[in-house]
């Protein structure tokens, strides 16, 4: 085959290869624009079934105070409003696990994940956490109490249908969270540890 034809065929092959690569890359970019990657919900095993366009509502989250070990302090956050109390509750737990945006202590270890959450007709919220809630808990009686009531008060204060909260670890009743507080029975709201009237507004959403 004459050399100039050979060079021409090689050149054509290279151009074709470049064109095909460009085509597939362009296709992928267009797909990404049309269908964005869903944002991961890092703290929830099952993301809440809430529309991204649902209206926002403010919720009060309770975090252990960094000033005094017997206190919980309130922070406001935004979540997507849902018709189901369980979906609102999942978002509240996700926000709690994500931590305080003020100078407050964590309510739960950041390694914790929410396995499941459901609310019964009798107003009992069952919160099933992964074992990291216990394994990575710093310990200490007051810290344990603060963790429990941060979860309980955050749910009961914001969701009218929830009166009591039962905490499970890995799907089962646990003796205690970190060796002290009885987890075998549900908790009711207890605001005696809460500093009332102090809120730190912060926006955010799932």
């Amino acid at each position: 085959m004459p050399r100039h034809i050979l060079f021409g065929l090689v050149f054509l092959a290279l151009i074709s290869l470049a064109g095909v690569s460009y085509y597939y890359d362009l296709q992928k970019r267009i797909q990404d624009l049309v269908r964005p990657e869903p944002e991961p919900a890092p703290y929830l095993a099952v993301p809440p079934a809430v529309s991204p366009s649902a209206p926002l509502r403010k919720v009060k989250l309770f975090f252990p105070s960094s000033r005094q070990d017997t206190l919980l302090e309130v922070e406001e956050r935004d979540i997507r409003s849902s018709e189901l109390p369980s979906e609102d509750a999942k978002q509240i737990l996700a926000e709690l696990i994500s931590g305080s945006r003020g100078r407050r202590l964590p309510a739960l270890p950041s390694e914790t994940r929410l396995r499941e959450l459901f609310v019964t007709a009798q107003g009992l919220a069952v919160v099933d956490l992964t074992q990291e809630a216990r394994l990575y808990h710093p310990g200490g009686l007051m810290m344990e109490l603060a963790t429990i009531y941060a979860v309980v008060n955050s749910l009961t204060q914001n969701i009218r249908k929830i009166d009591r909260v039962q905490i499970l670890i890995e799907g089962a009743e646990a003796e205690t969270l970190a060796g002290h507080i009885d987890l075998s029975r549900p908790f009711s709201e207890d605001l005696s540890m809460t500093v009332l009237g102090e809120t730190a507004k912060s926006s955010g959403g799932p």
Binding site: S65, D69, P138, G140, L141, M142, M143
Partner: peptide
């Protein structure tokens, strides 16, 4: 008998 642990106090 236990020992305490809190970052707050």
């Amino acid at each position: 008998i236990h020992t305490g642990n809190t970052a707050a106090a």
